[in-house]
Every structure is written in structure tokens, then in C-alpha cells.
Nucleic acid binder design. Sequence first.
DNA 1: ATCACATGCGACAACGTTGTCATACGGGGC
DNA 2: GCCCCGTATGACAACGTTGTCGCATGTGAT
Lengths: 331, 331
Amino acid sequence: MRDVAALAGVSLKTVSRVVNNEAGVSPVVTAKVERAVLQLGYRHNLAASNLRRGDARTSTVGALLQDVSNSFSSSLLRALEDAAHQRDVAILASSLDEEPSRERTLVESLLRRRVDGLLIMPATERQDYLVDEVRGGLPLVFVDRRPQGVDADSVTVDNISGARQAAHHLVGQGHSRIAFLGDLTAIQTAAERLSGFESGLAERDMVLDPRLVVTEIRSDAEAMAALLEVLARPSPPTAVFAARNTVAIGAVRALRHSGLSSKVALVGFDDFPLADVLEPGLTVVRQDVRRIGEEVARLLFARIDGDVSPPHHIVITPELVVRGSGEIRPQ
Amino acid sequence: MRDVAALAGVSLKTVSRVVNNEAGVSPVVTAKVERAVLQLGYRHNLAASNLRRGDARTSTVGALLQDVSNSFSSSLLRALEDAAHQRDVAILASSLDEEPSRERTLVESLLRRRVDGLLIMPATERQDYLVDEVRGGLPLVFVDRRPQGVDADSVTVDNISGARQAAHHLVGQGHSRIAFLGDLTAIQTAAERLSGFESGLAERDMVLDPRLVVTEIRSDAEAMAALLEVLARPSPPTAVFAARNTVAIGAVRALRHSGLSSKVALVGFDDFPLADVLEPGLTVVRQDVRRIGEEVARLLFARIDGDVSPPHHIVITPELVVRGSGEIRPQ
DNA sequence: ATCACATGCGACAACGTTGTCATACGGGGC
DNA sequence: GCCCCGTATGACAACGTTGTCGCATGTGAT
């Protein structure tokens, strides 16, 4: 900037005015400065600018997701990006992989970078560690899981309702031996889906057979192995509820592998690309990811714009999408 | 920091030494400072720190991808993240949507933020605008498409080879009426896949019937519509090559919709989750995304670490994955 | 001709941090 | 008791930028 000023024969401050499009610089001088900028390949330094400006806006937000390569996380990221792009805000994206320590260090790292706001799909059970930040005015929105120990905005899905719908649907098709495949029960959403499924069955005067419940499943490969094992038992289930998208994918593989795709009913939680073109089409409980992303972006940017109203907790009700796999009747 | 120094009764510089874990501070003073840091909730400001330090490392890299919600882009992002995480580097991720102007403005915005390096899956045809930056030492790696007009590292896939393999495979199954469905021919990879497919046919003494070629397809919905139209013609193709993942998905839908899944052969370019559990399994030309991501990360961080060797152009050869859909014989 | 006032520009300090150098102190060797 | 040296700490300037204020110059009204 100093060089630009020297080349244009003006003061530093005048260059600053030009690059910031401030009023009060004559067209002649503006042109001289712009020529110098081009000639020297000068690029404005946002960090220094933000440092000097009091308002401390870095035009950057952080997004801590479960795994950016998972379709749920990446669709959410994309929705946030669309909103951020309009305001010239960049996104620092990271994956947490359900590791609490990773969440802690990444939050720390993002705050050091002075992000304007934070979107978190938490991997920790409690987020008390953020209390001071929120009190200090950090715009913070939780997604997929409600915050614990700190009062901040959240956008979540009614997992209980979704799992109940799945239970009712399968019972309605005449099933009574239904297997449940789920993720780590330490994960709030996973626990809710299990309890929602149980209460859905209870409402139809049934109980979930604990021998048909497998949890702590971390990948589609594990899900496939788990279901194969369950199907090999003496009295196998006639229907399966897979409580997460990767788990459902593993279940599809297991059924395919054992030639039971058209014999054992399957309902998944969370839609994913191509679920409709499987054979049979996969019946799922769908969370409207686009909508979730939009709500998250709306809340986050409202906070960044200074909204200090009490935290909002938006709950989106998922819907059952019937495609065939969930409508198979018990043999 | 000033407050911390005052509370601990030491100088600014000493606080700086403590937060940077510099040697030469007595344990007593270190403890006092750390207590003050905790008490005041002080957080180190990376931007100011980088400003003052000469080396200008922001520990941030930019990733400009085609669309972060597409499985190819998001897998790449994830691979880069894994490498970046080890070095405490954060990633600014954005989608370009094949819009050249978006690439330009996003590059500008990332450079203003003084990223340490840039990964670009270009949407522009030429990247001359980056010549000065590269000459100035900007670590820059292109992925999926080779740079034009600027000499920088790249990691690409041998699209010609992949498309030729697909052509040979389909011809080998006895097909002669083969449709080609592709993306915008302005996109380098799309053009290569078309010409590779043509030369693959030529090597078997066949020519691609221009009436069976549909390009400029932007979404799976468009691909589905295009293939339905082609299949409805008087002499429909007996096989289809879909030159991109979303195009292949649309093609699967079209075949399903017209009940031709087991009658018309289909080969896709680029694997995606679940392609193996379709009915029949989708035969694809697979690009090893993980490997691409690792190579990209390796190159990028080597440049950031000061590697000034001539640009490397890594070309990864894709392989045909046989799953059933590509082995259907002409009726 | 005088004054008030608007316009265009520059000097200077400050944002939060760290590199450089200086200083104070204690200990060991003679 | 003297000198030298290593160790711990601090004062100060500087990184690239912008907010504040002040100073010229020009304009229009009186």
C-alpha cells in the first residue's frame, strides 16, 4: 500500500480510501491510484484491515460438521454456503468424526481466527465450554443436536416422531419381529431414534426385542456385518429399521448379499441420493436437509447482524417417504 | 493481552512468550500468566500474530470445488482436510458451480484473506489471471482439470483412457448402437471423455452416431429426460455411456422408468456411493478420489513448505469396475 | 473584499501482536 | 573483589491498515 501511494503520488490514507470505495476522492486521483494498484499487483490485506477496524468482522464463519464427505453434512454445508455467498462470507469447514476432543480443538482454532459465527453439529455431549463465548456475544447455532449446558440457537429434527412413524409403518405392514440397527447411543440423535422407535412400538402394544437391537454401528461395513449376523439367527427378523443413512446402506448391502431384498422389509432414517432407484426403492424417514440448512443460515446471520433475542429452537418434523422396501409384508 | 500482562504483573512481551510456548520464561511467571489468561478468558489473535510475524502464514488454505455437496468434490475436500488437520491448517471451502465469474471473485476473496495455498477445480477455461500470483510464489494446485495459460501443479484423471475403456467394453459386449450422454463440452474433462469415447469406438472400427450424442447435460433430471427422449426414437440405442456421475444417475432413473434396466447396457464415468447395490449393479469407470485427494494435498503442502521445483502433473488412470449393467448384451 | 463552509487530501495514532535489542541479576572463575 | 557470561525480562518499533482530525483550497453569499 505504501508503494502504491508512492507510485500514485498520494498519501497512504488516500489509497485506503480508494480501495474501500470511500467517497470524497476526486476522479483524477482515484484513477491514478487504481492504475498504481494494477501496476504493482497490490492486494488489500483483509486481516490488517479487520485488525484496525473496530468492528472485528472477518466475514468468515466456521462450520463444524460430522463429516464433510457425508451427504447430510455436505448438503448442509452447501445450503450455508449459498446464504454466505450472498454476503461475501467465507466458510471454514471441518469434520469432527464424532470425536469430542476434535470439536474442542477446532472450536479453539476457529475462535483464534476470529470467525464471525459458528455452526456446530456437536460431537461432545455437553457444550458448557462455550458458555463464556455465547455470553460474550459469539453467534452460535447448533444443528442436528440440541446444545447441552449452553443456551444457543438450534435447528434439529424431531427424531422421536420420525422413528415412531417408522415403527407404526412397519407394524402396520404386519411385522412383529423387527430389528433395530443404530449408531452410538452416546449420540443424542441416535438415542432419540431408538427411544422413539420403542415408544412407537409400545403404542401398538409391542416391545422391541433386545436381541434384535444392535447399536454402536459406525460404518456401512459394520452395519452390513451386524445385519448379516442377525439374519443368520434361528428366528430372524422380518423387518429392519436402520436409524442412519450409512447404516441403511449397510443394511441394503446385507439384504442384497443374502438375497432377501424383496423378503425382509427395510426402513431407513435420513434420505440419500439414489435411495429411490434401489430395488426395491428404499422407504425412508426424510429430514429436509435443504430446509435445515436454510434455517441454520437464517439464524446464524441474524445473530451476526446483531439479533440478541432469546435462543430459538427450531424443530423440523421428518416425513415418511414410501418407496417399496418398507411395504414388504412378513413371509 | 495488555490486560493479561497487567493482571499477571508482567510485560506484554512476556505474555507473548508464554502463549507461544517460547523458552526462557521462568515457571513461576509462566504460571502467573496462564492464570491470568484463564481468568480473563484471553484468546490469542491469529490475525494480528500473522500480521506481525514476517512469514505470513495464516495456516489456512482455500479449496474451490465444483460443488461441495457433490460426492466427488466432498470426498476430495475430506482428503485434503485429513492432510491439513495434521498441520493445524484450516480450509476455506467454496463451490464454483461451473461459473467462471464465481471462480474469479472467490480466488480474489481468498487471496485477500492471505491463504497459504489454493486448490482449484477450475470453472474457467483459462487461468492466465493467476500467472502473477504463481510467479509471486502462491502455492497452487489444480485438480480434475489441467491449468491453461498458467504453469502450476495438477492432479487429473486420464479421461481419454477411461472413456476408451468404456467404449471397448461396450463394443466387446456386442453393442453397435451406443448413446453418449455428457456434460457441457466447454468443460475440459467432458470434452475429453467424448473424444476418448469416440477414439475407443474408432479403434474397433466404429463411429459414434451423432444422433445418439447428447451433451450440455447439467443435472440428473436433464440426463433422465434426455435419455428417455433418445430411447423413444425409432431405433433406440442398445447401450449407453453416461460421462459423469450425476448424468449416470439420471440414466439409471430413465432406464428404471422405462423398464429397460436389464435390457439396455449402461456404463458410467465416476463411481459413487451405492452404485454397487443398484439392480443391476452399475458398471463404472472409477477415478480413485481418495488417491487424487492425497496427491493434491501432498503437492499443495510441499509447495507451502517451499518446494520450488517445476510443476508436477500427476495423471491418474481410472479403471473399469464391472458390476452388471455394462455387461448386458444387445437384444 | 470578507466570511462561512464544503471538498479533497494528508499526518498521525492505533488495532493486537512479536522481533530486536537492551538491561538487570546471579553465579562462577580468577 | 573483579570480570564475564548466561538467564529472565522489558521497552520499543513495526506488521498493513483505517479512524480522527486538521489543513489547504475553492465556492458562493454577503
